[in-house]
Simulated assay, not measured.
Amino acid sequence: METSMHHSVDPYDALPPVPAFTLRSDDIADGRTLGVAQRSAIFGRPGEDRSPHLRWSGYPVGAMSFAVTCYDPDAVTVSGFWHWVVHDIPASVNELPAGAGNIDGKALPAGAKTLTNDAGQRGFLGAAPSPGEAPHRYMFVVHALDVPTLDDVPTTASPAWLGFRLVAHGLGRARLTPVFGIPA
């Protein structure tokens, strides 16, 4: 059931402000509908669960690593839904190819670590909102961090636990927020 507040809240507004930098993609764009590649086949609908290409620039001097997250604040839960969570991306990397979020992790740079998403998978899960809900927002965010690794984040940590470290070590954020909904 749709509520009028559904899309008014931006969870990043509740965090301490940090400078923005630029995120571009060959596959996704702000406010645009996700393509089939970034949708999920988890419930038998067309989808490829392929993470989008991402390229970032203009990040703060002093960035020693990056994290990439994809979060749906509009999932019908009290906690939203984490689709993809990667950290310890080396500072020398400013681009991930499409499919970097594959569960095998082969397209991620050396050293990058993927946490389990809210479906229990260590990779990218595409969009799969329930039919009839207003289109959900999928917040793809690159976080520039002031440490080379987040060694204090265990591989069993939840995305929310990593979120504390992203705030503590955040120098800047770059964002793209495509949308996707399925008509009733």
Rank of each mutant, 00 (worst) to 15 (best):
V68W: 04
T116K: 13
P46R: 11
G58W: 04
M64Y: 04
E48L: 15
Q38W: 02
L54S: 02
D118H: 07
D104V: 08
I103W: 12
N102M: 12
V61L: 01
R55C: 06
G101A: 14
W82P: 01
R50D: 02
A107R: 13
P97T: 12
L108T: 01
A91D: 14
A67V: 00
A110F: 10
H53N: 12
N94Y: 08
W84T: 00
I42Y: 09
P73G: 04
Q38E: 14
N94G: 06
E95F: 07
R50H: 06
I89S: 10
D74C: 13
Y59S: 00
I103Q: 15
G99I: 10
A100R: 09
R39K: 03
V86Q: 05
A100P: 14
A63F: 03
P109C: 11
A119M: 15
W82M: 09
V76C: 09
S65L: 03
S79P: 12
L108N: 05
S65E: 04
V78N: 11
V68I: 13
A119F: 15
R45V: 12
P90D: 14
S51R: 03
A112T: 00
P52R: 01
V78F: 13
P60W: 00
V78C: 06
A91C: 12
R45A: 14
P109A: 07
W82D: 04
L108C: 03
E48T: 12
I42V: 09
Q38N: 10
A41W: 12
G47W: 12
G58L: 01
A119L: 15
A75R: 02
S57C: 03
S40E: 10
A100T: 12
N102S: 07
V76E: 05
A98E: 12
F43N: 10
A98Q: 03
W84L: 07
M64P: 00
S92L: 11
T114I: 13
P109E: 10
P73M: 04
A98M: 08
S57P: 02
L96E: 03
A41T: 07
G44C: 11
I42K: 05
P52I: 03
N94F: 07
G111P: 05
K113R: 14
T114R: 14
W84G: 01
C70E: 05
H53P: 10
I103D: 13
H83G: 07
P52L: 09
V93A: 06
R39E: 03
A100V: 08
C70R: 06
A119W: 15
P52A: 06
P60T: 00
A67Y: 05
N117W: 10
K113P: 01
R45D: 14
T116A: 11
H53T: 08
A67T: 00
V86I: 08
I42G: 08
D49M: 08
S65D: 07
G101Y: 08
W82N: 06
S57K: 06
L54Y: 00
P73A: 02
W82E: 06
V76I: 12
E48W: 15
P109I: 02
K106S: 15
P109Q: 06
L108F: 07
A67W: 01
G111R: 11
L96M: 04
G111M: 10
E95L: 06
V61M: 04
S40L: 02
G80C: 07
P90W: 09
N102L: 10
V61T: 05
D88E: 04
P46W: 15
A75Q: 13
R45K: 15
Y59I: 00
E48S: 13
V86E: 03
S79F: 15
A112N: 02
W82I: 02
F43P: 06
